[in-house]
Design a binder for these strands. Structure first.
Lengths: 137, 137
DNA sequence: CTGTGTGCAAACACTTTGCAGGTGT
DNA sequence: ACACCTGCAAAGTGTTTGCACACAG
C-alpha cells in the first residue's frame, strides 16, 4: 500500500513527514515509537511536526496509538476497516517490543446495568517468541 | 480496615502521608488520581513525597495503579489477595471516573507458540451508570 | 492564492533525583 | 541511634502552544 495513495484517499496533503511515518509504520512488523520512526527516516524532522502528524494520522484511522504503562507510546497501522473486531496488544517485558495481535479478538465484557461498553483495550504482557527462545551463544 | 494496621503488617513506617493515602483510597468507591487524593487530605503534602509513597504502596501491593491513555493515572485498593484473578477496569468517557470491575475476571488469551502471558490489562471505555442516566433537570 | 503544515522557541505537566534535615521505631 | 522518610530545589521527559514562514493543491 502506497503512503501517497493513502494520504490522497483521506484528502490529506502529501508532505514528506506524513509520507515517511506511514511508510515506516506500514513496513514494520511491530509497533514503533516516535523515536524509532524518526530514526528510520533520513531527513531531519521536528518533534513537534511529528506529534502533529501522528495526531492527524490517528484521527483519520490510518495508524493507531498504543500506550504501555504511561511510559511507552507506539504506533501501528490501523486496520479496523479490514478487521471488524478489536484486537489485543502484546508487550514483551524483555525486549519491550509491542505487536498487534490482529488475530486475537477481544472478549466483549458484560458490564453492570447502565454501563455502556464503547471500546475495550487489552494489553497482554509477557515474553515474546524471540526472547523466550533459549539463548544460543 | 485500618491504615495503621495495614502499614504494620507490611513493616512499613507509619507516616501521615502513607496513612492518609491508604485511608482515602480504601474509602473511595472509585480509583483516584494523585490530585484527588491530595485534595481529600487536610495537611499539606509534597508531591514528591506522594509519588514516593505511591511507589512504596504499589510495591507492597496495598494499592494498584491504573493508567488511562498515557494521561490519567489513578490508584485503587489492591485486592489481589482476596481475588485470585485479574480484573478489568472501566473508564467513563463522560465523567472520567475509573472503577475496578472486581467481579469481571479477564479472559486468559491464548498466544502464538513461544509467547508467554504473564499479565493481562483490560480497560473498558464507555459511559458509566450515572452518566448514562437521562438528565433530570 | 489560500489554507494547511512546518520549524523554532517557549511553556507545561508529570515524574524523578540529590541532598540535608526530620522522624518513627 | 539509625535507618528511613520528608521537603525543597532542580533536572528530565514527553507533549502542547503560539507564531512566522513555507508549501501543497
Amino acid at each position: 500500500m502506497d503512503p501517497v495513495e493513502i494520504l490522497n484517499r483521506h484528502n490529506l496533503k502529501r508532505t514528506s513527514c506524513r509520507e515517511g511515518i506511514i511508510g515506516v509504520v506500514l513496513k514494520a512488523n511491530q509497533a514503533l515509537s516516535e523515536n524509532e520512526i524518526r530514526n528510520r527516516l533520513t531527513g531531519n524532522y521536528d518533534r513537534t511536526t511529528f506529534y502533529r502528524s501522528f495526531k492527524t494520522l490517528v484521527q483519520h484511522k490510518i495508524i493507531h496509538k498504543i500506550v504501555i504503562d504511561n511510559q511507552l507510546v507506539k504506533y501501528a497501522p490501523d486496520n479496523s476497516i479490514t478487521h471488524n473486531f478489536e484486537h489485543a496488544h502484546f508487550y514483551c517485558n524483555e525486549c519491550h517490543s509491542v505487536v498487534c495481535m490482529d488475530d486475537i479478538p477481544v472478549q466483549k465484557y458484560v458490564l453492570p446495568n447502565g454501563y455502556s461498553n464503547d471500546e475495550t483495550e487489552v494489553l497482554i504482557k509477557g515474553t515474546c517468541g524471540i526472547c523466550s527462545k533459549p539463548e544460543i551463544k
